[in-house]
Write a protein that binds this DNA or RNA. Structure first.
Lengths: 138, 138
DNA sequence: CTGTATCCAAGGTGATACTG
DNA sequence: CAGTATCACCTTGGATACAG
């Protein structure tokens, strides 16, 4: 088992990291809500009437999201109590996702961030050009 | 081209995705600022006096970040014009990162999100427990 | 329509060692 | 002190096919 030099240290680091997460759970939550899809989904739901949308509506409203990510993200949001999932057992099943009050409070913040991104995009773009030009001058 | 193997369709999808990014650059920016480390770094800088911190101070202030991620994230922030990088060529080199006005405007928002995460953590936690218990009852 | 399960490519991420 | 470079990993995320 002398092999385990690297592997052992990995494992050790891994555990240390997990312990850290346990001690710093806020980081976890922050990382979760900092997710790209979370922002888009919560924003989309927040803008919708009744803060509610169907599964397929979400998929259509959010460009580039895959079924997998949509389902996965919605699950975690449901688990965290940010959205509720309502199944209507009609013949084609209908599922609605609705923002809870908790989710709405976050939705406002994330919408602001999204708005910031939209309104400051050209500014950031300009900075990028400047930076890239300066870097190329090496 | 009956080939139409999986690889071909991959490539096609890939190009479509890139085209999408080009058409939807806001999504790029949103994804960038939704990054976990971006939030932590910008928040840390925002809370600091003079909105400025040294490289090592940042590393100490943000638990769990590696040199690589710190440098990498700071570079992208600099490129986007959210922070400025100032090198003081003393004997032990000193580098300060300072939030620009643009960065500060984002910093306020991200701090709010961070604050939300901190203040609603127990609530989310409670929801998770409920959800997990309900799921286990399958 | 709304998922679930599997496979697979790609990139994010950290550990380590080295430079100025 | 402040990086840079390399390597190895392993999670993320998409495509696909299948199910209720």
């Amino acid at each position: 088992m002398a092999t385990s030099t690297a592997a052992a240290r990995r494992e050790e680091a891994r555990l240390a990291y997990d312990a850290f997460l346990e001690e710093c759970p806020t980081g976890q939550l922050l990382a979760r809500i900092s997710d790209k899809w979370v922002g888009l989904i919560v924003s989309a739901l927040g803008q919708a009437e009744d803060r509610s949308l169907r599964y397929s509506d979400l998929g259509r409203k959010i460009p580039g999201v895959s079924q997998k990510m949509l389902t996965q993200t919605l699950r975690s949001l449901e688990r965290d109590g940010l959205v509720t999932r309502t199944v209507t057992p009609t013949v084609p099943v209908r599922v609605d996702y609705r923002l809870t009050d908790l989710g709405s409070s976050l939705g406002g913040l994330l919408s602001s961030v999204k708005l910031w991104a939209e309104s400051h995009f050209d500014e950031v773009s300009a900075h990028r050009d400047t930076f890239d030009r300066a870097t190329a001058t090496s």
